[in-house]
Design a protein around this nucleic acid. Structure first.
Lengths: 206, 206
DNA sequence: TAGATTGTTAATCGATTAACAATC
DNA sequence: TAGATTGTTAATCGATTAACAATC
C-alpha cells in the first residue's frame, strides 16, 4: 500500500459509484472491461489501480460486484460513517447539508459554524449554527476528522487554522484561496470559478 | 497554442486569482518566484505554463501584474462576460446563483430550469424557474455556451443531452454520473462525494 | 481442454523540474 | 558592467497503457 497516486484514489471512488449502480441492477460479476464500459476508464488502468491494494478478482472469471464494492468502501473508509464539521452557514453550506449524496456516501455533517452573530443560534436544517469560536471545544466531543470550508476566501486561512487546532486532519476547501497547513493535514480544493474558467478556455470566440 | 495540458489551464486560473490579489495590493511587478511564493506552484512550472501562449515577461525584471492579469483573463476568456444556463433549482442550484465568486469572475447565470411543476414559474433569487422542456427554445435567444448540471445523477445524462441540443459547448456537472457526449463538448465533473472519499482515505482508522 | 480474464511487468506517454543561454 | 530573471531545452519523474504469463 506504498504511495498510492491521487488519480488512482479518485478513480477508486468512481469505480465504487459504478459498482453500487451495478449492484442495484443485480449484476453480480463484472470483468475489467465491463468496468471500462461503465466508467470510461481503461480496463488496464482499473486492474493497475486495484493492484495497489491486493488481489480482487479471479482470472478467467472477473470480480464479484458485492465483494469488490465492500472492499473499495473499506479502502476509502466510507463503510464507517464519517463525521464532518462545516464552517460557513451561507448558501453553499446550506446546500451541502441538504445534499442527499453526502449522506448516501456515509458523510454526516454533525455541526455548523459561522462568525455572523445574526446567524449564530439559528437553525440550518436541523443543525443549530454555532459560534466559530467554540469550534475546538465542540469538537472535543464530536471528534470529527474532516472539515469543510464554505466561507469567503478572505476568511479561509483563518478558518483552516481553527479546524486544525480542533483536531481536523482533512479539509475540503471551497474558497478560492491557497491554504498553508501542517504536512499531516490533507486538503482538497474545489474552485467553481476555476472549473468554469477551464471550460471557458475551450470555447470558440463568441 | 498547440495542445495545452489541462493541469496548465487549471494553474492559469490559479495564477489569475493570485494576480488579482496582488493587483489589489498595488504590487505592479512580480517575478516567477514571487508567484511561487503566492501560489505554491513551482516557478519553472509557471514560466513553462506561460510559454504555451507566448512571451509575457522581461528577463532580469519580471512580469507586469496588470498586463499579465489582463492577458491571462483573455486566454481563459473570462474578460468577456460568459452566459451560463443552470439546470436544477434545488439547494445546490440556489447556492450557485447566490455565489458571489461566479459573478466576480464574469460568469453570469442567465436562466434556471427544472422539471418539477411545483417549482416552474417560481423565482429563484431574481430568476424565474423555467420548464426544462423550453431549454432549447430559450437558448435560441440567450445563446449561452456553458451549462451547469445540478440535478440528481439519474437525470444527469438526459439533461446533458438537452443542453447539447440547445447549443451548449461546455458543461459543469455536479451529478455523480459519467456523461456520454459528442467529442466537441467539454465536460468537467465536480463530485463532492469523491472529494470527501479521497480525503477519508488519508485518515487513520478512527 | 479451450477460452476468458486476471495481476504484473515492461513500454509508452506526458507532465514537472532543473539548467542555462539570452537579455534586460 | 554585474545581477537578476526570463523563455526554452533537456533531464527527471510519474502515470497510463499494452502485453503476456499465470490461472480459473
Amino acid at each position: 500500500m506504498n504511495k498510492v497516486p491521487i488519480p488512482t484514489l479518485e478513480r477508486l471512488a468512481t469505480y465504487l459509484t459504478a459498482l453500487i449502480e451495478l449492484n442495484c441492477r443485480k449484476i453480480d460479476t463484472v470483468s475489467s472491461s465491463d468496468i471500462e464500459q461503465a466508467t470510461g476508464i481503461n480496463a488496464a488502468q482499473f486492474r493497475k489501480d486495484l493492484s495497489y491494494f491486493g488481489e480482487f478478482g479471479r482470472p478467467g472469471i472477473g470480480y464479484d460486484v458485492e465483494e469488490l464494492k465492500a472492499r473499495l468502501a473499506r479502502i476509502l473508509k466510507v463503510e464507517q460513517a464519517q463525521r464532518v464539521l462545516l464552517v460557513g452557514a451561507g448558501n453553499l453550506g446550506s446546500a451541502l447539508i441538504g445534499f442527499p449524496v453526502l449522506k448516501a456516501q456515509n458523510f454526516h455533517i454533525v455541526a455548523v459554524f459561522d462568525n455572523n452573530y445574526n446567524k449564530i443560534g439559528r437553525k440550518l436544517w436541523d443543525l443549530e449554527i454555532r459560534d466559530i469560536a467554540e469550534l475546538a471545544e465542540v469538537n472535543t466531543e464530536l471528534q470529527a476528522q474532516i472539515g469543510i470550508i464554505a466561507v469567503p476566501a478572505t476568511a479561509a486561512q483563518q478558518v483552516a487554522c481553527k479546524l486544525v487546532e480542533a483536531g481536523v486532519k482533512a479539509i475540503l476547501n471551497f474558497a478560492p484561496a491557497i491554504l498553508r497547513l501542517p504536512e499531516d493535514v490533507v486538503v482538497r480544493n474545489v474552485d467553481f470559478g476555476q472549473e468554469l474558467a477551464v471550460l471557458a478556455f475551450h470555447l470558440t470566440e463568441s
